[in-house]
Design a protein around this nucleic acid. Structure first.
Length: 340
DNA sequence: AAGCCGGGGTA
DNA sequence: TACCCAGGCTT
C-alpha cells in the first residue's frame, strides 16, 4: 500500500533520460548532473551533452577539456573528471557494469549513484537514499536524530520497503515525492499521497524532520585577478590546477591577496604568467559564495601579451564556449566588459 | 567523522 | 540579501 501511494508520484514529469527503453548511459549522466544540482539548471546541459556525446563510447573517446566545457557553470567539476574516467574504464571492460556492487568500483560512483543506475537502468533490486529519500523517510517514520543519523537510518530501513521487482519505480517515486511534495521547507502535506501513513503529518511538525543543520562559518578568501587582453581581443586564461578551487576549468590569472594590496597581488599573478608590470585598471570586486567559503575577487584589467603554455592560453571571447569555465569567471569577464 | 568541492533556488 | 541544499572524495 505504501508502494501504491508513492507510485502516484511517478510519471508526473517527462524527462529525457526516463524514456523507455532506458539507456543506462543517459540514466548515469543524468544522475551525475543531478548531484547537488536541480533539474531546471542541468536540463539544458544534459541535452547539449547527449547531443555531443550520444554514447558511452563517444564520451570515452573525448578529450577531458571538451567534457569540462559541457559542464561549465554546473559546479563540482570533479563530477566531470570522474564521469570521463569512469566512461573510459567502462569501455575498457566492455561496457557499463550492470550491478550496484560493480558500478561502485568506478570513479564517481558512490553508494547513491551506483544504486540509482543499477535500479533505474538495470532493474536491480537495490534501495537508495538521497537527500529527498532521507527526508521522506524521516518524516514518514519519525526518525529522530541529526541529519547524518537520519541518513544512516534511512539506508538501514529503505531495503525493507522495496516492493518486489519494482525497486526502480519505487526509488524514483520516493525521490519525486521528496522533490515536489515532501519539500525541505513548507512541505505540501495536504497533497501527499502518503498522508494516512505519515507519522508527522498529523502533528504538523514534518518541518522538524530532519532537524535543520547548524550554519557552518564561512571563511573569506580574497583573490586579486587580472583580465589581460591581447590586440586581437582575446583574453588570457589560466587553467586551475588540481588541488585548486575550480580545478580543471579556466580562470583569470589570480593571486591570493588576503591582507595585501590587491593591485600588487594582481601584478604578481601576471608576473607568474610572464607578464611584466602592465598598466592595470581597477574593475571593482566580484563575489562568489561557495559552500564553505566566501570568495572575493579584486578585479583588474589591462592589455598585454604572454607566451602561451599548457595551462596558459589566449582565448577569443567568441571561443569561450569551447573550454570549461566557472560561473566565477563569467562574472569576472562581465565585470571587465568582456562578453562571451 | 569531518572537511572539501560550485552554484542556484527560495524566503 | 541571507539562507538553504547535498553526493563523492580525501584526509
Amino acid at each position: 500500500m505504501l508502494l501504491n501511494s508513492a507510485m502516484e508520484m511517478r510519471t508526473s514529469v517527462s524527462l529525457p533520460w526516463r524514456e523507455e527503453p532506458r539507456d543506462p548511459y543517459r540514466v548515469w549522466l543524468s544522475e551525475v548532473m543531478l548531484q547537488q544540482t536541480r533539474v531546471a539548471a542541468m536540463l539544458p546541459r544534459y541535452l547539449a551533452f547527449v547531443e555531443r556525446f550520444p554514447t558511452l563510447e563517444s564520451l570515452a573517446a573525448a578529450p577531458l577539456d571538451e567534457v569540462l566545457a559541457l559542464f561549465s557553470g554546473l559546479g563540482y567539476y570533479a563530477r566531470a573528471r570522474h564521469l570521463h574516467a569512469a566512461a573510459q574504464a567502462a569501455v575498457a571492460r566492455g561496457g557499463l557494469p550492470r550491478s550496484s556492487a560493480e558500478l561502485s568500483k568506478l570513479p564517481g560512483f558512490g553508494p547513491y549513484t551506483a544504486a540509482a543506475v543499477a535500479s533505474l537502468a538495470f532493474g536491480e533490486q537495490v534501495a537508495l537514499v538521497d537527500g529527498n529519500v532521507a527526508r521522506v523517510l524521516a518524516r514518514l517514520l519519525r526518525i529522530p536524530g541529526t541529519a547524518a543519523e537520519v541518513r544512516a537510518q534511512a539506508w538501514e530501513v529503505a531495503p525493507s520497503l522495496l516492493p518486489a521487482g519494482r525497486a526502480g519505480e519505487f526509488n524514483e517515486a520516493l525521490m519525486e515525492l521528496g522533490a515536489t511534495v515532501c519539500k525541505p521547507r513548507a512541505p505540501s502535506c495536504e497533497e501527499c499521497p502518503l498522508g494516512p501513513h505519515c507519522q508527522t503529518r498529523d502533528g504538523g511538525d514534518a518541518d522538524a524532520f530532519p532537524p535543520p543543520k547548524t550554519a557552518p562559518e564561512r571563511p573569506v578568501i580574497v583573490w586579486a585577478a587580472a583580465a589581460v587582453t591581447r590586440e586581437d581581443g582575446s583574453v588570457l586564461l589560466r587553467r586551475h590546477p588540481q588541488g585548486e578551487l575550480f580545478a580543471g576549468t579556466w580562470g583569470l590569472p589570480f593571486c591570493d591577496a588576503g591582507g595585501g594590496i590587491p593591485r600588487r597581488s594582481a601584478r604578481q599573478a601576471l608576473e607568474a604568467c610572464g607578464i611584466r608590470a602592465p598598466a592595470l585598471r581597477s574593475r571593482g570586486e566580484v563575489r562568489q559564495t561557495l559552500t564553505h567559503r566566501e570568495l572575493r575577487v579584486a578585479l583588474f584589467s589591462g592589455t598585454g601579451h604572454a607566451r602561451e603554455r599548457d595551462d596558459l592560453r589566449f582565448i577569443a571571447p567568441g571561443k569561450l564556449g569551447s573550454v570549461g569555465l566557472s560561473s566565477l569567471l563569467r562574472k569576472c569577464l562581465r565585470a571587465c566588459g568582456i562578453e562571451g
